[in-house]
Amino acid sequence: MKKRKRLKIAGTVLAVAVSLILLQELLMPKYIYDITEGAMIREYYGEAKDHDVVFIGDCEVYENFSPAVLWQEYGINSYIRGSAQQLIWQSYYLLEDTLRYETPKVVVFNVLALQYDRPQSEAYNRMTLEGMRWSASKVKSILASMTEEESFLDYVFPLLRYHSRWSELKAEDFRGMFRRERVTHNGYYMRVDVRPAENVPEGRILADYRFGDNAWAYLDRIADLCQEKGILLVLVKAPSLYPYWYPQWEEQVEAYALERGLPYLNFLELTEETGLDFSQDTYDAGLHLNLSGAEKITRYLGAYLREDIGLADRRGEKALADLWRDKLAAYEQDRDAQYEKYGMTPPDR
């Protein structure tokens, strides 16, 4: 009798737990059709993890570099672990997380994130943190990222945060419980439309142009971790015209790169070499590149990785080539669908 009672209690507890898990899955935002940036971090875990290059950083990596071009033209297998307003400590912990699965030869980090020295916004935090698999790195990233209003428990049990979405559920919430459509191409967010950069404002005067101690400490940790694992860390500044990149910031990054012996590519200073044209190569007036712009600067980066760093051409590896055949097909399909959506004529290739 006692055994039966225990079984019933266990059954009830299990039913409650399963119900709550399903409820949580249902209520959490899926980021499939809206704010797709929230789905990016999660996508990495479904990948075959054999990348030569991994990018970490904010929108300036996931909107400006195309892994498809790195593969198609240089045979370099890469992935972008980018997310919206990814803070530098989030990049560090994402790097730690990535190294649980693979050790790339090169890590590319975009330096704009140095401007933030403290937690910023729950909304952006969640887009980076919720997609991470649970690990010590995720816990540390949450603790480093939380604003004063946030609670760690809300990350452990997102149901506590999202319970009131029940009245706004849509079909995608049910479909996305068990299967999520991909929103990127190896982490790259594609846009083909054009909005020329005009009247880009200059930066406001700042009281202090020095990057914060916390930001520097995490850049040190990224550099140290890469060094420890035998990974080459390449610092980049994407060619985004806004937010403004101050000369005083540039000086600090150049000095740091020199001191640590790290390569640093500032694409703002390479527009002639890359052929970027901000009347054609941006979809939001200079904040981010469109496909045309991203492919241009990726070609420059690919040549650099091949010729200066010596990364090998792996297009002869059958398994990888097969994998990329499907990826390139999806990339081209997305590209063509977007050209059609925006009523554009694809440029000659």
Binding site: D34, T36, E37, Y162
Partner: peptide
């Protein structure tokens, strides 16, 4: 929070109470 750093998505209005 701040909203000045550029971005991609077109709409958040349907994201419920996220």
């Amino acid at each position: 929070g701040e909203t000045q750093e550029g971005g991609a998505a077109e709409s958040a209005s349907d994201q419920g109470s996220a």
